[in-house]
C-alpha cells in the first residue's frame, strides 16, 4: 500500500495535558473514517496531520517526507487539503474568491488555479452560486464552500474535521458521493456521525483517550459488534462495543 501519511509513536497535547499517546498510524489512498467520543483526540490528530501543530514526540511523515520543521511543514501542506472543525471565513469573500484564495494559500500553480477553483466549487454543487458572498449563505452552504477549499488543488491527503456538521440529509448524501468519487486520495474523515463513516469510508479508525483502539474495515468493525451492544445498525453496535470494552477495561 502506498503510504501518504504516517505517524510513529506520536505524542501530542496542549500545555500540560497529553491528548494523543504514542499513536502509530499509516494512511494510504482511500477513505478513513475517524471515530471516537468527545476528547478522544480526533481533532488533535487531524490538526497534527495538517501540520498545524508539531508533534510533541514521535514522528510525522507526509508523502514520504518527514515533517520536522516549518519548511518541511510548508512543503507538506501543498499536498494537504484541510477543513478545520471551526473553519473561519471572511463574510465579504465570494465563494469563488474564498476557494481561489485557499488555492493561493496552498500554492496551487497559478496556471491551474482558476480551473482547480472552478472544479472544486462544482464538486460541492455551488457552481451557480460562485459569485455569492459567504456572508449571505446558510451554514450548510458555507460548509460546502469550506469543503471546496479543502478539495482545491487535488491534494493527496484530505483532512476533514466534522465536514457534514450543518448539512441537511440530502447534502450529506451528496457529500458521501463526493467522497466516494475522489480517486487516489487519502481522506481522513473525523466525525461523530457513524452513518457517514459507514456509508462513505473504506476503513475505520476508532480513537479513545488518545489511543487508537481499532483500525480496520467497516466490515470488521461490524463483525466486532456484540449482540447486546446499543445501536441501530451493525456498524453502530460495533463502535459501541469497542467503547464499552474500553470502559470495562478501565
Amino acid at each position: 500500500m502506498e503510504v501518504i501519511a504516517e505517524t510513529a509513536g506520536l505524542v501530542q497535547g496542549y500545555r500540560g495535558r497529553v491528548v494523543i499517546r504514542g499513536l502509530d498510524l499509516r494512511i494510504g489512498p482511500g477513505r478513513l473514517g475517524l471515530l471516537g467520543p468527545n476528547g478522544a483526540g480526533k481533532t488533535t490528530l487531524i490538526r497534527t496531520l495538517a501540520t498545524v501543530v508539531p508533534p510533541r514526540a514521535g514522528s510525522l511523515a507526509i508523502c514520504g517526507e518527514r515533517v520536522d520543521s516549518e519548511r518541511a511543514a510548508r512543503n507538506a501542506r501543498r499536498n494537504i487539503g484541510y477543513l478545520p472543525q471551526d473553519f473561519g471565513y471572511y463574510p465579504r469573500f465570494s465563494i469563488y474568491d474564498f476557494v481561489r484564495y485557499c488555492a493561493w494559500l496552498r500554492e496551487v500553480p497559478g496556471a491551474l488555479a482558476h480551473e482547480e477553483t472552478t472544479r472544486a466549487i462544482a464538486a460541492v454543487g455551488l457552481a451557480d452560486r460562485a459569485r455569492d458572498r459567504l456572508g449571505s449563505l446558510s451554514g450548510g452552504l458555507v460548509r460546502r464552500a469550506g469543503i471546496a477549499t479543502a478539495l482545491v488543488g487535488q491534494p493527496r491527503l484530505l483532512l476533514l474535521d466534522e465536514p457534514t456538521a450543518g448539512l441537511d440529509p440530502a447534502q450529506r448524501v451528496d457529500f458521501r458521493e463526493l467522497l466516494r468519487s475522489l480517486p487516489d486520495v487519502a481522506v481522513v474523515l473525523s466525525t461523530h456521525l457513524v452513518e457517514d463513516v459507514a456509508a462513505a469510508c473504506d476503513s475505520v479508525a476508532v480513537m479513545n483517550e488518545g489511543h487508537l483502539v481499532f483500525t480496520g474495515t467497516s466490515g470488521a468493525l461490524q463483525a466486532a459488534a456484540s449482540p447486546s451492544a446499543r445501536g441501530s445498525s451493525g456498524f453502530e453496535r460495533g463502535y459501541m462495543t469497542l467503547l464499552d470494552e474500553r470502559m470495562a477495561a478501565r
Binding site: 501543498r78 484541510y82 473561519g88
Partner: peptide
C-alpha cells in the same frame, strides 16, 4: 478571528 488563524497556519504560503 477564530478559524481564520487555523486556515492561515495550515497554509503552504
Amino acid at each position: 478571528q477564530r478559524g481564520v488563524t487555523e486556515i492561515l497556519t495550515a497554509a503552504a504560503r
